[in-house]
């Protein structure tokens, strides 16, 4: 693992990490949950977490984003002013502020991440209003701008999200998270439940936005194709532990751990 950690994308050479995780552990039973996870994430870097169902991917993600306190270990984030903030030592108010300003979270099911009872424009504007924007014209402009960026017709700004298709809801959720220009976004299977052509479009959009906004992303997926397209680095999880980590191409083309070999070889080749 330590050897793999030395391998960082060329873009982040010479910069300080954005996000540092040390020995993060949360167990629901022996080998159930996740344990002993450490990594660093650099600005603009995309980290993929892959593994089978029940391997602890989602537990790890909720530990990372402050939704559930760990049994052991620490999560640290370097904020806009360059100070390190320990996520679980910070107050709940600081954690919430972080989650809706410098961080984003894209849920697997857009219904969990959107307010289904209010219009698309209000969904996009909510983070801005929480940050104290009190100018309707500005909120409206941001809403129109972001709908365009995620390829939704701006004329639908006043429509309720439930009148949108699954792929549009997912894109709206992404817009709602990115409107506050976050530096770090967590994604939990963002393409799950979408058909293949919509998946491809969403991935394309995500790839563009990640590059354009220089986002650091932690993306959980069981789809190796998604991982290959988006992620710079991969962590492979099995039975609550990280069994292999390194550059995406390296892991997918030359897997070392028997489980990773199994995972890579089980992908259907068309």
């Amino acid at each position: 693992m330590s050897a793999a950690e030395q391998l960082l994308p060329a873009t982040s050479v010479g910069t300080e990490p954005l996000f540092a995780v040390r020995d993060l552990t949360r167990l629901y039973g022996p080998d159930k949950g996740c344990q002993g996870v450490s990594f660093e994430l650099y600005p603009g870097e995309v980290l993929g977490i892959v593994g089978e169902s029940g391997s602890g991917k989602s537990t790890l993600l909720s530990l990372l984003c402050g939704r559930c306190p760990p049994d052991r270990g620490s999560v640290q984030y370097r904020d806009g002013s360059g100070d390190w903030l320990d996520l679980y030592a910070a107050s709940e108010a600081e954690r919430r502020t972080l989650l809706r300003t410098e961080w984003g979270f894209v849920e697997q099911n857009p219904r969990d991440g959107l307010r289904m009872g209010v219009s698309a424009g209000a969904n996009i504007g909510e983070r801005l209003m929480a940050q104290g924007v009190r100018h309707y014209g500005q909120l409206r402009a941001a809403g129109l701008d972001w709908l365009q960026q995620v390829e939704i017709d701006p004329a639908r700004i006043d429509d309720l999200p439930r009148t949108f298709s699954g792929g549009m809801q997912q894109r709206l959720q992404i817009a709602r998270n990115l409107v506050s220009s976050p530096k770090l976004v967590f994604m939990d299977e963002p393409t799950g439940g979408l058909d293949v052509s919509v998946q491809a479009r969403l991935l394309d959009l995500l790839r563009g936005l990640v590059r354009e906004l220089d986002l650091a992303v932690v993306i959980v997926t069981h789809d190796l194709a998604v991982a290959r397209l988006l992620a710079d680095r991969l962590m492979v999880m099995r039975r609550s532990r990280v069994v292999e980590s390194g550059l995406t191409d390296q892991i997918l083309d030359d897997p070392q751990h028997p489980y990773t070999q199994l995972l890579v070889s089980s992908v259907l080749q068309p």
């Binding site: 108010a93 919430r96 809706r100 307010r115 209010v118 219009s119 424009g121 209000a122 504007g125 909510e126 983070r127 209003m129 929480a130 940050q131 104290g132 009190r134 309707y136 909120l139």
Partner: peptide
Amino acid sequence: DYGVMHVKLYE
């Protein structure tokens, strides 16, 4: 944490 209060006015 009162940001959501303005969501209703926005609507």
